[in-house]
């Protein structure tokens, strides 16, 4: 606790706060596209306020967590694998050991906890941004008023949707950071090996995010 406690805040800022701009950017355009595609699909047959339903449900249950997770697999997972891989091949991890630091406590634990705690926060903001972008699109580009959009938002909303979204995100955070740490720690060789570890970390954590996505849907919905 004494080793990783002080490092946790820094990792939370790095993994979470610094990831917000890219996560919000992606969520904003996802919200816009969802609103436009819903309107295109619903034309005539389904009342247009269902745009709100689709934006809210899709964003919170699926696209918010999964798109953010995949983005952070690239940003955070690659960063961790490259950083720890470089530390491994330049003997910085050995140096930590000789200075009587436990590399797991010093390097891995703060990153795992930061991923577990901060991915849900980033996803919560992304969900909100997606819905906000969907609303702005609906009232500006579609023939929809704010009360109609909000009606759609509230129609099938269940508080559990948010819990589901955040549980999923926490598991994604754990997987992305754990896989990044694993491939970084087990890097053997030089610069080429660091590149290989980084690629593997992104590919494996992206695949696991999709597997976990299906797992949580089967277990919790």
């Amino acid at each position: 606790m004494r080793t990783w406690g002080a490092l946790l805040v820094g990792q939370m800022a790095r993994l979470g706060v610094d990831s917000l701009p890219i996560a919000l950017f992606i969520a904003a355009f996802t919200g816009i596209v969802l609103a436009l595609q819903a309107s295109y699909t619903f034309t005539g047959a389904i009342p247009l306020y269902f745009v709100g339903v689709l934006v809210q449900k899709t964003m919170i249950l699926e696209l918010g967590p999964v798109l953010t997770g995949l983005t952070l697999a690239g940003r955070v997972g690659a960063n961790i694998a490259a950083e720890l891989g470089t530390m491994r091949v330049t003997e910085q991890i050995d140096a930590l050991e000789t200075l009587a630091y436990d590399p797991i406590s010093y390097l891995v634990v703060p990153r795992l906890l930061a991923g577990l705690l901060m991915f849900p926060v980033v996803v919560a903001f992304a969900n909100a941004m997606g819905v906000l972008a969907g609303w702005l699109t609906a009232i500006n580009l579609l023939d929809l008023s704010t009360p109609e959009f909000v009606r759609g938002l509230r129609l099938f909303f269940r508080p559990f949707d948010v819990e589901f979204s955040l549980i999923k995100s926490a598991s994604f955070g754990l997987v992305v950071t754990a896989i990044g740490c694993f491939f970084g720690f087990t890097t053997l060789g030089g610069a080429e090996a660091v590149g290989r570890s980084t690629t593997r970390a992104v590919v494996v954590s992206s695949m696991l995010i999709l597997v976990l996505d299906a797992f949580w849907a089967a277990v919790l919905l």
């Binding site: 330049t90 910085q92 050995d94 140096a95 050991e97 200075l99 009587a100």
Partner: peptide, 19 residues
């Protein structure tokens, strides 16, 4: 082991400074 390592200083080939 960590207690022992406090009695041992290790100078690495390429310094292994934390960059």
């Amino acid at each position: 082991l960590y207690e022992l390592r406090r009695r041992i200083g290790y100078v690495f080939q390429f310094a292994a400074l934390f960059d």
